[in-house]
Nucleic acid binder design. Sequence first.
DNA 1: GCGTTCACG
DNA 2: ACGTACGTGAACGCC
Length: 888
Amino acid sequence: MEKLILIDGNSIIYRAFFAMPPLNNSSGLHTNAVYGFTNMLLRLIQDEKPTHIMVAFDAGKITFRHEGYEDYKGGREKTPPELSEQFPLTRELLESFGICWFELAGFEADDIIGTISRQAEEAGKEVLVVTGDKDMLQVVSDKVKVALTRKGISEVEPYGPQEIKDRYGLTPEQIIDLKGLMGDASDNIPGVPGIGEKTALKLLHQFGSVEEVLARTDELKGKMKENLVQHAEDARLSKQLATIHREVPIDRSFDDMIFHGLQEEKAAPVLRKLEFKSLLERLSFSEGAGASEAGDEGARKQDEVDVTVVDETALPELEKQLPKIEVMYVESHGDNPHQAEVMGLILSSLEHHFFVSNEFLLSEAAKPIKEWLADPQIPKCGYDLHRADLALHWQEILFAGAEHDIQLAAYLLDPTDNNQTISGLAAKYSLPSVPSDDEVYGKGAKFKVPDQETLSRHLARKALAMLRLIPLQKEELKKNEMNRLFYELEMPLSRILADMEKQGIAVNREALAELGKEFEAQIEKLETRIYELAGLEFNLNSPKQLGEVLFDKLGLPVVKKTKTGYSTDAEVLDKLAPYHEIVQFILEYRQLAKLQSTYVEGLLKEIRPDTGKVHTFYRQTIAATGRLSSQFPNLQNIPIRLEEGRKIRQVFVPSEEGWYILAADYSQIELRVLAHISDDKGLQEAFLHDMDIHTKTAMDVFGVTQEQVDADMRRSAKAVNFGIVYGISDYGLSQNLHITRKEAAHFIEQYFEAFQGVRRYMDEIVQEAKRDGYVTTLLERRRYLPEINASNFNLRSFAERTAMNTPIQGTAADIIKLAMVLMDETLRKHGLKSRMLLQVHDELVFEVPPEELETMSKLVPETMERALTLSVPLKAEVSSGTNWYEAK
DNA sequence: GCGTTCACG
DNA sequence: ACGTACGTGAACGCC
């Protein structure tokens, strides 16, 4: 017969937490409740041999019970953070055990269990409910037993109808009446004063039910009668509160609950992360293997590999196997993929590994391999295909057909994992060990291309790990509902980015050098003046030496210190300006020195002599929020705020005579996203009318009319809006606006009064993060926040602000990425010659031939605006000119 | 290789 | 009481 075990997750974890001594793993994670829970779970599996298991959780929000009685569970202490952080861990553990869990907003675990146990009973299954909550006894029947925990959780006591009768002299249904009369302090169920278990049982033995007791109070006497008459309503309400709801909508089938047994490859990594060594041993899983962080790699074996080195003799064999090749990997050396040296290519299936040296790849004989690489109809799986594409491109080898990039998938599955190398991923998934590149090649100055034997074997090990990683990633992407994000957004975008990077943007070298001369002249003047005023020459670029001059020699007041000494940043210098005229000159020097070193000299170094262009590299797997980042050079931080710096933009020009630079940027995209996800009616209204959002905020925060908003009020409101997007704190806002914390707190309160939907969103997203351990964007991009339940205030606060900010910044990133994919399609569809060149978070930059300028000026903003439909319109503004400066 | 500073959204 | 605004990359000094 089929046997289903239903576990009340919350109840067991609570009891385990208080029953177990404190326990944590080496990274400080509290694990005692998870440990107790796991122990009990394993014992149940061993003793009961269930065919099905399901764990129910409270969804942690307001339940239907609150609708009738506000104080329900009101008397409970707040859950300690050391316990809260263990809920996401428990869910992760259950998933690794292949055990189904369920929760539903508005219902408690009790109700879920009540419903499933009823359904299971109707389907003829045997059921065992495991909980610490006596209320649950009401669901007992011939088919349904309830195991109550005793002494913490180390023992359980099973109850069937007979056991309930022996213990209480009641039927299971009468348990509800019992609660109705005696109440339950821990659930804040009032019951009737003066009536405890003894009296309640006596009454029920005599009358049978709460209703009957209340109807026949005339048969009673004394204080008890008085209490019952006076609190009749409390008794009825208490009975209602204690009644388990058995018609919860549950979208899980019994098939979902089938327990297939533990699989080491899935369960072991989680147990290792928790450092449950005794459990690993008990399950006879190897203990040291696969601990990704602990550095005990040695315990995982390496694959033995057999590689065919492709030369003209071996080529026919490879050609025969090409249709079966499942993964490819291009090994290259150097951080900048536009200048990377290709070391070799590996093409693998589970049966074969073919190593192709770059020398052979570049030879005429390798034509079939090149045709395979270039064929967009042949889907390719691999690791960092974007980098491979660029490295191959610069040696005139075409690449197309990327389908599944392991690095990109790893990024979506955990964007904050900082070891998304093949070696790191192999460890994370407990696959056979792959030595790190640093181990094989040496790092920094020690880097050396190894002999072909070593290289090809290393690549074959990587390829094997890749072959195994792909199905695991596919499953996880599907489970996280990230298939569309991955296959329809990030993968297509990866090819588009590569195209933009290969195209590059032209830089007017002469104009840049000229600008450099102007800066240089000013810098020299400032240097002379500063040394004069200081009375000595020193290294102005050294904060240490500058600090000594300002604070020791000139005796200026110390405003702020760093870990290593005096702080001399711009904020400090601003405060010091009134004390000494040298300070203003230092600020100007700093500004120009930055422009000179980073933007003039830095950019000049990046211009390719052959093309006169700079080719940035967009990294798609770095930013935790889903944004892109840009390197070699970074074209996402070209100056704009100050006029001197903004001139740098003049040197970014079209690559063809007579063409234009066109730039379009989203207006207030983050606040529009916030209006959508918070469903704040006021904010939505403002955007529907396309109001100036900072003015609107000022009106609502200060309670004034549009005409009464002055520049200062608008400035404050703008800072508040920024703060809201960043996950506001009174301290942060006070720093930004140079006001007291109290004043900042007042602004924030005023803001939340005016925009209550935003307040609700901020509260709910933090709760969601605490419950799930992660937050998501509109397109299901995910960011884990392991510190959201930390007991350390700073860590927890940071995680809370991140929980508020990431869905906003991340959804904005989703949107512009969608726009880029759409834009690429649109350019093709219309057969336009215009080219997309740059992305700067909320801005896209194009070069456009004159005859397309008018078309593009409409098409680009239209495309950006239709990228995603929100409850408020998206707005994009476009402009163009003969260089990037003029396109403002 | 780390800390500080500063450029951008 | 705690002591920060969110996300990046590059240049420089210094050990």
